[in-house]
Design a protein around this nucleic acid. Sequence first.
RNA 1: GGUCUCUUGGCCGAGUGGCUAGGCACCGGUCUGCAAAACCGAUCACUCCGGUUCGAAUCCGGAAGAGACCUCCA
Length: 489
Amino acid sequence: MSSKLFIYNTLNKKKEEFIPLNPPFVGIYVCGPTVYGDPHLGHARPAITFDVLFRYLQYLGFKVRYVRNITDVGHLENDSDQGEDKIEKKARIEQLEPMEVVQYYSDRYHTFMDNLNVKKPSIEPRASGHIIEQMQLIEEIKKNGYAYEVNGSVYFDVEAYSKKYHYGKLSGRILEDLYSNTRNLDGQSEKKNSYDFALWKKALPEHIMRWPSKWSDGFPGWHLECSAMSTKYLGDVFDIHGGGMDLIFPHHECEIAQSVAAHGKETVRYWMHNNMITINGQKMGKSLGNFITLEQLFTGEHPVLTKAYSPMTIRFFILQAQYRSTLDFSNEALSAAEKGFERMFEAYNNINKIQPSENSTVNISEIRNKCIDALNDDLNTPIVIAHLFDVVKTINSTLVGNEKFDKENIKACKKLFDDFAFEILGLVQETTNSNNQILSDVVSLLLNERLSAKQRKDFETSDRIRNKLTALGIEIKDTKDSFEWKLKN
RNA sequence: GGUCUCUUGGCCGAGUGGCUAGGCACCGGUCUGCAAAACCGAUCACUCCGGUUCGAAUCCGGAAGAGACCUCCA
């Protein structure tokens, strides 16, 4: 394991060797979901990307604290609803308490993440539980002269900040461009400049999600929660901050500004951003209304879906692309992922059928090193999968006598899949074979009948049994003088 | 309009200055009573135009097309 882990740092736009601040400890913060709607395919990408990072760092022996927040307050809607809080808006529509909505969608998010075999983060803080920390942060920023108060609201003073620091360093934005391009939003008139952003917003009378503060009864600004919670749990400086590319500006840019304004230094050492999942070449998202929820994918209940796809198909599909590339959704692509995934795990299950030879035509440790190299190259999961498929081919070839495994390589082969496919990529075999003993017995009974029909050359009977079982979703494979079967989903 | 990114075979996707991933689909063959599975094999590629180079799909310039961000967004 001589090679070193390199990750692409958005801050410098290049791959950099990952050196933790305090090894063996690693701190990761990832922007989690806003819980006012069901998670869609797009949400699965960062969850799985950073899950693999989490898993891989642990595999490498690091002690990782992984913080992924839940945003349950603070994001403003567009100007059509006068800056009403998203959570609150939904609550009013459904006549629910805001926290009821939050609870509902948080639970669902967790369920779907479990389905995708995404490990739970070490800490999952909620914005609403950290109002005090956010207020303290505002105080710091204000004390340092980078915020101003107007009518009970507090805004970040981008101009003042820019005199000393570089606002736009992450997103590559230039202040003058922002000035001419920033859209007029609610509260614009009270801001010194259009590009200033709110740290604390005074609540309108009808606003029920509100907290008392020295400035006003109100709520914290859009970007504050992540600054407050990341440093609270990971320290003033920590290793990795992740999220979707669409968060780079303004969200992460503002986070940097807030942290620097408050602490005088940058908190994040490596910024990592996953790319978008597209559908027909366009970003899948709420505003475009072209998203498919995870539930719809799992059930197949969506007009564009020709069938249901299992959680592992989704996970495999996502891992077959490098996380910084866009990934285009299509039924064809999903089906391809499904088939490939099945084939891979069938081969895995066949490893124990291999008869060991004296010598070996394969060298698993070589492949193992290649897998490590691929992961070390900015988590190149598609390469890892390609290597695993090479092994799949070798396993199958061995079973028909074209290749050879010795004892040692059989063991190594199993370990290869256990480590890379299961532990690091986080794939799990979906048990399509029923655990139901009665079903299993009945199918075996029928297939034994078919076998004897075959043996007395009564192919009419044997084909009839096969066709009927196939129609019921049971896939039959004939072996030399027996059979195998499995449930086809 | 500003900033940035991308363009790989039927589809999804890696990668790289010469050795030209992988999956899925398709085609031929082996096996099979037939089929499925598996194996073997074949076909299919780097948007276009210039330039650098012994050699570029890979580097540089230009064009066209697509996308992202600039507003909540994974």
